[in-house]
Design a protein around this nucleic acid. Structure first.
Lengths: 205, 205
DNA sequence: ATTATTCTAAAACGTTTGTTTCAAATTTTA
DNA sequence: TAAAATTTGAAACAAACGTTTTAGAATAAT
């Protein structure tokens, strides 16, 4: 055996390339899961929205579950990027926290669907360990982002009423889920804006 | 036509009575929906848990959707009764609020499944108007219960930092949903207890 | 241009879905 | 006790489910 044998299993003739844009297709599938949930979305719903045949889907991305995993990864990753950009270069940590809270309230009361990560948490995260991991790391990202800001704010005494940064981070994050539920039930922006305003006032005490 | 004709359509021969206990069967079905969600629960899952045949189910309760409606009604109604009993005769409004918060935190970190009402809100309440109504009135109950206490607490100056009872009610309720999500993700009781403690401290300012 | 390879579309796959049928069992009224 | 009415269990229903197969179109390398 010589070195070239190692590569003998590689395709000699490279036939057709995949026709469809995988990222675009996943984004389309994500929208379906977002609206209908994991169990509520059928493969026919998905392939129709993606504009591809199920054979292409199974040849490239995989089965329904693998597709779902890619969709929520896509969702959480794009949210992370958006958050990074959003808080990029804000001098005051407390101002950054406030901006993050207001941006969350705005997103919740503006987007057509409630957060896919939260919907997924309540629908399948209890059973599905693979989903659990993604949801957990998404949550951890937000947590680290906020706790960094809170620790800084405590350090420079922008926040004076507590030294427990971990608790305060949890405390703030908890609100977002409640706002989502509230908005589904009442469809009332002002209720959420008022509580967001109050939460920010609390931070300034 | 005489008066007796009005009743002529009523059954003359009353045959068998329904064998199974409907309330018990609905309670069993509720557990299945609670674990698997609406779309995740199959009729075979449900009838097996209920211990009845699907023909009996369709003859008495109705189809899957009607069964689900009865299940979430059962869920919300029993929760309402429990809440009423719980706060029955507590002299101080603020103490009653605190008890309600602590009881919520305890339930969230103790029960095997996350709240059926919240799971339902995120899974189907966006589309299903019948479900929406039930969820909304369940929410309204909690809202009225809390706002009553908060208004009293403001009146007798147990709460001094705000006069906006509506906002504060929303603010408190919002936490519960967040705790549910947090507990699904982290399974950490102390994180929830800490934020509950902090929330109560805020009320005493 | 031929060959090897991969992609795509349509159809079909076996299961499972929610729901209905139907005969047998049961019970009440007469 | 006979007749009428209704529930029950088992089987069957069509439709939809997630997935696979298959034949042919497409394309890169020879």
């Amino acid at each position: 055996m010589n070195v070239s044998d190692i590569f003998i299993s590689l395709p000699v003739h490279m036939a057709r390339n995949v026709e469809f844009d995988e990222q675009l297709a996943i984004s389309k599938a994500m929208d379906v899961f977002w609206k209908k949930g994991y169990n509520g979305a059928s493969m026919r719903d998905l392939t129709e929205a993606m504009g591809i045949n199920s054979s292409s889907l199974y040849n490239t991305i995989g089965d329904k579950h693998q597709l779902f995993i890619k969709c929520i990864k896509h969702y959480t990753e794009s949210r992370m990027e958006a958050a990074k950009k959003q808080l990029h270069q804000i001098s005051s940590p407390l101002k950054a926290i406030e901006k993050y809270i207001n941006a969350s309230a705005y997103t919740i009361t503006t987007e057509p669907n409630s957060c896919l990560a939260i919907k997924t948490t309540f629908e399948v995260a209890t059973f599905d360990v693979e989903v659990q991991k993604i949801i957990k790391s998404d949550n951890e990202f937000t947590y680290q982002l906020l706790i960094g800001l809170i620790k800084k704010a405590i350090d420079i005494q922008e926040i004076k009423f507590t030294k427990d940064a971990e608790m305060l981070t949890d405390y703030i994050i908890n609100h977002f889920t409640g706002w989502h539920e509230s908005f589904i039930i009442h469809q009332d922006k002002t209720r959420i804006k008022k509580t967001a305003k109050f939460l920010i006032e609390q931070l300034n005490k």
